[in-house]
């Protein structure tokens, strides 16, 4: 197993090595030691490999990830897995703000809490947060799913488009044009698959509430001016 110690090797060396991997590589599991909160670790990957990072990472870890599995045995800074396209990112600790921002596909699992604007402008990624999420989670989220086992802060789903939000705990407040919606069987099935994928087979999908767009602000109308 290739091991890169970021106490001695620069992040540039790690990313360059990961970018140079061919689809046929048999170096499919990588270990990264001593990340020490450095930024942009394992960004821009595009190969079906697993990168396990022992420690906490800074901004943008696994940014724009494709295909790869990135595991962080620690916490993650701002913009975790931003604009991720596919693959899987798993953070064992907490995540700072804007986790999964603008991401298009794959699965992001956060074992701890996620800070503000988790899933901002989400475009198709599935996010499962085992703890709670901060304010403005799902802001302007377009597509994808955000599952929160804990509580959600203020202005959940503000200005949301077609993304789906599932919260098991309390919601401090809903944002503009975000409403609670019925949790139907199709949503319970979707939740079941997401929880299973996140390694949570014992969590009851029926215990969540669903939130999404009221679709009242999709076309500008002067009568809605008070909502903005």
């Amino acid at each position: 197993m290739p091991t890169v110690d970021l106490a001695t090797a620069p992040v540039r060396e790690l990313n360059a090595a990961l970018h140079s991997l061919q689809p046929s590589t048999n170096e499919t599991v990588w270990r990264v030691q001593n990340p020490r909160g450095q930024h942009a670790i394992a960004v821009g990957l595009d190969a079906p490999v697993t990168v396990e990072i022992d420690g906490s990472v800074g901004y943008y870890c696994a940014g724009m990830n494709k295909q790869a599995t990135v595991v962080v045995n620690g916490s993650a800074g701002q913009g975790l897995a931003e604009n991720m396209m596919s693959g899987r990112v798993h953070v064992k600790g907490d995540a700072s703000s804007a986790a999964g921002a603008t991401a298009c596909g794959g699965l992001l699992v956060i074992d701890g809490n996620a800070s503000a604007r988790c899933g901002i402008s989400l475009r198709g990624l599935d996010i499962v947060v085992k703890g709670s999420v901060g304010h403005m989670t799902g802001f302007m989220a377009q597509a994808g799913n955000i599952v929160v086992l804990g509580d959600a802060g203020d202005a959940l789903g503000d200005s949301i488009y077609e993304a789906r939000l599932f919260v098991r705990g309390t919601v401090k407040s809903l944002g503009t044009d975000c409403i609670e919606k019925e949790l139907r069987e199709e949503h319970r099935m979707l939740l079941r698959s997401l929880l299973d994928a996140a390694g949570l087979p014992d969590v009851d999908a029926a215990g969540f509430r669903r939130y999404g767009s009221g679709r009242k602000l999709y076309n500008f109308h002067i009568d809605n001016i008070g909502a903005y």
């Binding site: 992040v11 540039r12 942009a40 960004v43 821009g44 901004y59 943008y60 724009m64």
Partner: peptide
């Protein structure tokens, strides 16, 4: 500054 570094890393500078 960090965002620019991320974009540089993704595109190998």
């Amino acid at each position: 500054e960090i965002k620019i570094i991320e974009l540089r890393e993704i595109t190998d500078w």
